[in-house]
Deep mutational scan, measured.
Amino acid sequence: YETDHQDYCEVCQQGGEIILCDTCPRAYHLVCLDPELEKAPEGKWSCPHCEKE
């Protein structure tokens, strides 16, 4: 399936195990989030940028 999400972390610009925001195209490593997450959230997730909106 096709997605318009970026394939690198918004914070460190590296690829790998990233989680995708359900609201925007941004993607993040769990450890690059502040506060960092230990595991990917279940269900819908909005990144810090979208949470501020």
Rank of each mutant, 00 (worst) to 15 (best):
Y1W: 13
Y1D: 01
E2Q: 04
T3G: 15
T3F: 15
T3P: 04
H5P: 13
H5M: 15
H5Q: 09
H5E: 11
Q6R: 06
D7M: 13
D7W: 02
Y8Q: 15
Y8E: 15
C9P: 02
E10D: 07
V11Y: 11
V11K: 15
V11W: 09
C12F: 01
C12N: 04
Q13W: 08
Q13T: 06
Q14Y: 10
Q14E: 05
Q14G: 13
Q14W: 05
G15I: 03
G15H: 07
G16D: 13
G16Q: 14
G16P: 02
G16K: 15
G16V: 06
G16M: 14
G16I: 06
E17G: 09
E17V: 03
E17K: 13
E17N: 14
I18A: 14
I18K: 13
I18D: 06
I18Y: 13
I18P: 05
I19Y: 05
I19H: 13
I19Q: 11
I19G: 06
L20G: 15
L20P: 14
C21P: 00
C21Q: 00
C21I: 00
C21K: 01
D22N: 10
D22W: 03
D22C: 03
T23H: 03
T23D: 08
C24Y: 01
C24R: 01
P25H: 01
P25F: 04
P25I: 12
P25T: 12
P25E: 04
R26N: 09
R26G: 10
A27H: 08
A27Y: 06
Y28M: 07
Y28T: 04
Y28E: 02
H29K: 01
H29P: 02
L30S: 09
L30W: 09
V31A: 09
C32H: 01
C32F: 00
C32G: 00
L33Q: 12
L33S: 14
D34Q: 08
P35L: 08
P35S: 09
P35K: 12
P35T: 12
E36Y: 03
E36S: 06
E36D: 13
L37R: 13
L37S: 14
E38C: 05
E38L: 07
K39R: 05
K39Q: 05
K39Y: 04
A40M: 11
E42V: 12
G43N: 14
K44M: 13
W45E: 06
C47D: 12
P48G: 12
P48I: 11
P48A: 10
H49F: 15
H49L: 06
H49V: 03
C50A: 02
C50F: 02
C50G: 02
E51A: 07
E51V: 05
E51T: 12
E51S: 03
E51N: 12
E51Q: 10
K52S: 07
E53R: 03
E53P: 14
